[in-house]
Design a protein around this nucleic acid. Structure first.
Lengths: 222, 222
DNA sequence: GTCTATATACGGATAGAC
DNA sequence: GTCTATCCGTATATAGAC
């Protein structure tokens, strides 16, 4: 009975530097899996092994907590430079585009990305700034990255995308990849096919058919 | 003082055949503008000029009411054959695709379609059947319609899409159109450009570059 | 079937001791 | 800063009269 005071000092796990981070981590889990409306501060407190009062000592109210959670996730997305890593080393346009497409799909369709997407879309009408933040941290850098890639491939003579068209083409390329797969994943509808190779292949061929530098062997490639 | 009984017999408006329909109509408005979580049965009752008890006489609980509302909207989408009306009369592939694209965008980006999309996506994890119903009533028929259009244009010699590739190409075409515009609209981010003409134009040219029947004048067209 | 009135609980937020 | 205990509004759902 020497130390009856400090009982629940650990936040259920490692990697909880401060109580504040511990709360943010728990809140993120709760919000992403239950949605903003269904999530309760009690649930967050329980998961964080903290009392509700402690939460309110760090955050003004539920909405502010939610805001910080989303902003935190967005920052991590943005900082994660590993996302959409370099494909510049690739030899030809076809393989560069394909590799890029695969990487992008695996990111966009990951459970974490889907969860945050759902929550942000759901609350965007009530929290416009959250929508803006998310858009600026996800789609905007992705599109910039693809635009740069098109310009680079064109500069190297592997593609022929006019520089003023590049942003629009980048948008269309991203759209082609994301589209229906993303919709299905968001809605919880079982995907029609488990691998995305055919879709990626034809999307790439559509780009090459119009913007390929050479007459471009239109066949599927390796 | 002859008829002091029947006071609130009208549901605030015309076109309320039964009380049930009146409740459904009010619930639709509330759910779509507030989201499932934030919507209250009191609000629905008030908007429908009905008591809460009456609602519970017609629907088991809030979730069941929501389910019926979504299913109703989906049915209307599906029946609305006017959606994506015929473009078969168009003379050439380019104008057919463009007209189709414009029609589709105006539907997908309409406030009503966006609102239902938001709530369905938000609640899909908790209500899987709603997600399925929505997907079957929206994206599936749209894609089938585009596939049919591609096959038709090919049959008429205006396009050269292999029949087994048509569904995938239809998906890619829809994806190109929907993509970022839809994302922005869902998130409440101001659209980058107010008209969609450039995006539609290039999307169509991408299709024509690979699947155009003739060598296809690649320039922008009229 | 429809209403008024109410049971019951839960959630956001706070008071006050330590 | 953190806890326990609580206030108070609101929300779902129901009881019972008509």
């Amino acid at each position: 009975m020497s130390r009856p005071k400090k009982i629940a000092d650990d936040c259920r796990s490692v990697s909880c530097p401060s109580k504040r981070d511990c709360i943010l981590s728990a809140a993120q889990e709760i919000f992403l899996e239950m949605g903003y409306g269904a999530a309760s501060m009690d649930a967050v407190a329980a998961r964080a092994n903290v009392s509700k009062a402690t939460i309110y000592a760090h955050f003004d109210n539920k909405r502010a907590l939610f805001d910080q959670v989303i902003r935190g996730r967005c920052r991590r997305f943005f900082q994660g430079g590993d996302i959409l890593a370099q494909v510049d080393a690739a030899s030809d346009a076809r393989s560069a585009l394909r590799q890029f497409a695969s990487d992008l799909l695996s990111i966009i369709l990951s459970p974490g990305a889907l969860a945050i997407n759902r929550v942000v879309v759901a609350e965007a009408p009530r929290l416009p700034e959250v929508g803006e933040t998310y858009y600026a941290a996800g789609p905007v850098p992705a599109q910039a990255r693809v635009t740069a890639m098109f310009n680079d491939l064109t500069r190297r003579g592997l593609l022929a995308v006019p520089e003023n068209e590049a942003p629009l083409v980048a948008e269309l390329f991203l759209n082609m990849l994301k589209g229906d797969l993303h919709t299905r994943a968001l809605l919880g509808v079982a995907p029609s096919r488990d691998d995305h190779a055919p879709l990626v292949r034809i999307a790439v061929e559509l780009i090459l058919a119009r913007y390929g530098a050479r007459p471009s062997a239109v066949s599927g490639g390796p």
